[in-house]
Design a protein around this nucleic acid. Structure first.
Lengths: 135, 135
DNA sequence: CGTTTTTACTTTTAAAATGCAAGTAAAAAT
DNA sequence: ATTTTTACTTGCATTTTAAAAGTAAAAACG
């Protein structure tokens, strides 16, 4: 089981201790923006995460209380993952990454529009996305 | 030599293709907030990066044009690293990580104040930091 | 009701990345 | 002339990641 050792008291360092890898924030992206909720859906993402890595990351993020796992209604084999408030608080970081990534990489026109929208109306976009997760 | 393969056209994924590890953003933190500029200074950071990893990351970030290396004035053996505008554009991400990390980890009082300051006056703080790098 | 399919993993093994310690080479300081 | 500083590189062990195959229980199907 993966354990977390904080390398220092620095908040940036500690954030990276948990999220500093190539996959964790993609899972959170899928939950935050794409509406994915199950293991099988995460597995189908374009970036092709390996199944053992996905399993390890999901259980780690759950242990860190960034996501939580619940049962799917009327189905005992399917599980439903969702962001906790701690996970939802990562929204600003993801939005900044969209803006930065869009500026320095070639992206589809659709994404360019989203990035511009974030640059112009960050607060409104944040509220709109968070509203979807109101419980 | 480390090469970058984009896993997808997603800007978040592409950002992580470059910065999705435990060290790169700490080097950028040292440049952005701590005023470090040389190999030896980065090496002394509290998080104890290994010397070969530091060397690899510096050359990778240079190749990605996030930092640039110049000669130290009046010293042929010392090098001076600095952020490019592409590197400076990572400031929002780092600020968000300070806020998130501070919220969910125990941090020194000094950092708590900085995090609150970022939450209340994000724009002003950004301008202030960027002004230091005006060239 | 029996068989197939779906779902969510786990296991195995190979490859790559990271970490640690020691070594190097040129310039600067003494 | 010798020592120290600076910026790395090299070799090797350990850890992490990746790819592929396997498992087990529930659900769907005929």
């Amino acid at each position: 089981m993966r354990t977390v050792k904080r390398r220092s008291m620095c908040p940036i360092s500690s954030t990276l201790d948990i999220l500093g890898d190539k996959w964790s924030l993609l899972i959170i992206r899928d939950l935050m923006f794409i509406g994915k909720k199950t293991y099988g859906e995460f597995l189908k993402s374009e970036e092709s995460i390996a199944t053992n890595i996905l399993a390890e990351r999901l259980s780690f993020l759950e242990r860190e209380q960034i996501i939580e796992k619940t049962e799917f209604p009327d189905n005992k084999v399917k599980n439903l993952y969702r962001l906790t408030s701690k996970g939802l608080d990562l929204l600003p970081i993801l939005l900044d990454m969209i803006v930065w990534g869009d500026k320095y990489f070639k992206t589809p026109a659709k994404i360019k529009k989203i990035a511009e929208n974030i640059r112009n109306s960050r607060k409104e976009i944040m509220d709109k996305i968070l509203k979807k997760f109101d419980s």
